[in-house]
């Protein structure tokens, strides 16, 4: 069942991205709590980093589509 393996791979990619983005979001919230006046900078950088982490997961999922 190669399909199942690909599905597991997709799930693993999702877990990785979830951990990464969760850490980024949590740290960003901590940072905002510590320095509420820097919310603009923190938000922009948070989204930038989260987008980069997500990019890795998206590429992994696309690869899952590609591998036949």
């Amino acid at each position: 069942m190669t399909g199942s393996i690909v599905a597991i791979g997709m799930g693993l990619a999702a877990i990785g991205a979830g951990i990464g983005v969760g850490t980024i979001g949590g740290k960003a919230l901590e940072a905002i709590a510590r320095q509420p006046e820097a919310i603009g900078d923190i938000r922009a950088n948070m989204i930038l980093t989260a987008a980069l982490v997500e990019g890795a997961a998206l590429i992994a999922i696309l690869m899952a589509f590609l591998v036949k």
């Binding site: 190669t2 399909g3 199942s4 690909v6 599905a7 589509f65 036949k68």
Partner: peptide, 16 residues
Amino acid sequence: MNLLFIISWIEFSPIK
């Protein structure tokens, strides 16, 4: 029926 079969069988045209 496995996943890959479905994906290739169905026309997943947005990726093309």
